[in-house]
Simulated assay, not measured.
Amino acid sequence: MKQLKALILAAAALVAAQTFANTDAQNDKIRERIKPVGEVCVGAECGGAVVAASGPRSGEEVYNTACAACHGAGILGAPKNGDKAAWDDRLSKGMDQTLANAINGINAMPPKGNCATCSDDEILGAINYMSGR
Rank of each mutant, 00 (worst) to 15 (best):
P110G: 13
S54K: 12
D96M: 03
M109E: 01
A116R: 11
K2E: 11
N128A: 15
A85Q: 13
Q18A: 09
A102L: 08
S92M: 14
L91H: 04
A100C: 04
A108D: 00
A100H: 07
S58D: 09
A68C: 06
A85Y: 06
A69V: 04
R31S: 12
P111C: 07
C70E: 00
G55H: 08
A44F: 14
R90Q: 15
H71S: 00
G77R: 04
R31A: 15
G43I: 09
M130T: 00
K35V: 11
A66D: 00
P36I: 10
L9V: 12
G55E: 07
E122M: 08
G113A: 14
Q3I: 06
D96E: 06
V15D: 02
I75H: 12
A73W: 11
G74H: 10
A44D: 14
G47Y: 10
K80Y: 08
V40L: 11
A12N: 11
A12Q: 07
I34C: 08
S92L: 15
K93P: 03
C67R: 00
I106M: 08
A85S: 13
P110N: 12
I75K: 14
V62S: 05
Y129D: 04
C67Q: 03
T117Y: 12
K29D: 14
T19W: 05
C46I: 07
L124I: 07
T19R: 05
G94S: 07
M1H: 13
N22H: 13
S131P: 02
K84Y: 09
N81L: 09
G125P: 02
K80Q: 13
G74Y: 05
G59H: 01
C70Q: 00
A126R: 02
G113Q: 10
D88C: 08
V42T: 05
L9S: 11
F20S: 06
I8S: 12
N114D: 13
M130S: 03
E61P: 00
G105T: 04
A13N: 11
N128R: 15
G105L: 13
G105N: 10
A100M: 08
M95R: 09
G132P: 02
Y63A: 10
I8K: 09
A116H: 10
M1T: 11
E39T: 11
G94Q: 06
G105D: 07
L91F: 03
Y129P: 00
H71K: 02
G74E: 10
R31C: 04
N128P: 04
T98M: 08
S54N: 13
A17M: 02
C41N: 08
E39S: 13
V50H: 09
E32Q: 14
A17F: 02
S131I: 04
S92Y: 14
A16P: 01
T98Y: 03
